[in-house]
Design a binder for these strands. Structure first.
Lengths: 276, 276
DNA sequence: CGTCGCATTGAAACTTGTCAAACATTGTGG
DNA sequence: CCACAATGTTTGACAAGTTTCAATGCGACG
């Protein structure tokens, strides 16, 4: 339909979110722990304190500014974080829950969903390892959306009041948090453009390219990945019906742009997809 | 079409933005200065330092937390703010401009617009007196959207680095800024729901009710107001063509829900409009 | 091996977009 | 102050895109 615009939108989308946030904690966090080891959620009881430190976390590069002194590092470690395990289908938090903490996805994935009494729903985002959750609650003191795990998942819990204290002491940490919140604003702007100006075909293409980039940034294949969400959830995110999502997948299959086998996705022709 | 859902969406929209932000400065700021006195922009050269203080501003209740001590007030006043006048059609900032400051609309109104090379555009928001602009720039250090004045307007300029300094010193100010950023996230979520799930008719209804509430919060009539934006800009915001916007206005006219005379709007039946 | 949830596909209906023409409003210069 | 140009708005007819409804297919899991 249009020019090199889908790719651009995809790039804009959570390029922001990717850089976005991360307060991933140590433990066994190899960069791959995120998606690969979701089975480990089974091994532990839900909710338990994590006896580890941000300073030892293998993903700390994404979680905090690079230029911390060791004294600042020590302060950061005093921020009592814990991890929490959430089973597939369970809520990390729900709209109207009291806001206490924000979260960083350490393993697994989530959807955030804004809902109406009348049943109307909008998925406002999908969060994978290394991305932030819960910033919607700062405004009113209550969460504004539900965060539902798409698979058994693990998050780092960052008590927001403590984070604010740390941010008053460490200038670069303060700016980092501001950047994360701003990234979320920019991410949502891009999504608004997607919803407001793109055709169904372009939206699905942008969605796949965006996911692809985020997986790539985590060290996974950009070409092949597994969708954790249903067609209906994708539709709810992209502002279309599940049948339309399915038709678009079929069209991409026919045009040899993407090879879909259920939830398994292989992007055959990323350039072609970007030009849709 | 649906139940009492449009009103709910309208309420969600910038109820957030309304509470949102405000760093409105003193000068002649009666609450009405915003919309009523836009002619005063003519009286002054563009860009000039404003020799006034936040602590004397008649709108400070919306700009800062209520529980400041006088010592804190003094600190706040040390934050060098100035005002800036922007003529109708001119940009307060443009995408890719270096980010230095955020802005609070003191008088007049703006649109923020995200653009693509290929000409695709999305209006991501309309800002009226008392609302914030520019938070999209924190993330990358460059603005992500254009902010264009819809009429001759005045903004307070808040240098962001200085704001961060103040926020490290005044806890309640820090939290206030976080709330403002979070409000923007929540506002955009609501807009995503509007774009993703509502019919053209419902979107226009929600848009009018939302504007109505914001004017009311500023002390103006909730029933009668003047649109500063064109049908095309409304369409670009709501994800539809200008002809569709026009048809919806005509439909509301026919159904005796709204009385439109060009850009002059009178909401005749707000309850009916909310039930569209 | 049957069931249940999810996915695909087709045909018809509906909503919105596109194109075109007429009309209204605003601003400008004579 | 008027005429005219430019811009914005309304309306209609038709086309395109998306949803709706319905049927079928597929695959994981007990």
């Amino acid at each position: 339909m249009s020019t090199a615009t889908v790719q651009e939108a995809a790039a804009a989308l959570p390029v922001a979110a990717r850089k976005a946030v991360h307060f991933i904690r140590a433990i066994d966090a190899t960069p791959c722990a995120g998606v690969a080891r979701q089975a480990s959620a089974e091994e532990r009881p839900s909710k338990r304190p994590a006896p580890v430190r941000c300073s030892g976390c293998s993903m700390r590069a994404v979680c905090m500014p690079a230029d911390l002194t060791s004294a600042e590092f020590a302060k950061l470690d005093s921020m009592i974080c814990s991890t929490r395990h959430v089973r597939r289908g369970d809520a990390l938090y729900r709209a109207r829950d009291e806001f206490q903490s924000i979260y960083a996805v350490r393993a697994g994935s989530f959807k955030t969903i804004v809902m109406h009494r009348d049943g109307r729903e909008q998925v406002t985002g999908f969060q994978i390892a290394g991305e932030a959750l819960g910033l919607d609650g700062v405004c009113t003191g209550h969460h504004n959306a539900d965060a539902i795990a798409l698979e058994d998942s693990v998050v780092c819990v960052i008590p927001f009041a403590q984070l604010e204290t740390v941010c008053r002491e460490i200038r670069s940490m303060q700016h980092h948090v501001h950047q994360i919140m701003s990234s979320e604003i920019v991410r949502e702007s891009s999504l608004m453009m997607l919803l407001g100006t793109m055709s169904a075909e372009q939206r699905v293409a942008a969605f796949l390219l965006n996911l692809s980039q985020r997986f790539k940034a985590l060290g996974y294949s950009a070409a092949e990945f597994h969708l954790r969400m249903t067609r209906e959830e994708i539709g709810c995110y992209l502002g279309m019906k599940l049948e339309t999502v399915s038709r678009m997948f079929s069209r991409f299959q026919r045009d040899k742009l993407v090879d879909t086998r259920g939830k398994q996705i292989r992007i055959v022709d990323p350039e072609g997809l970007a030009l849709v």
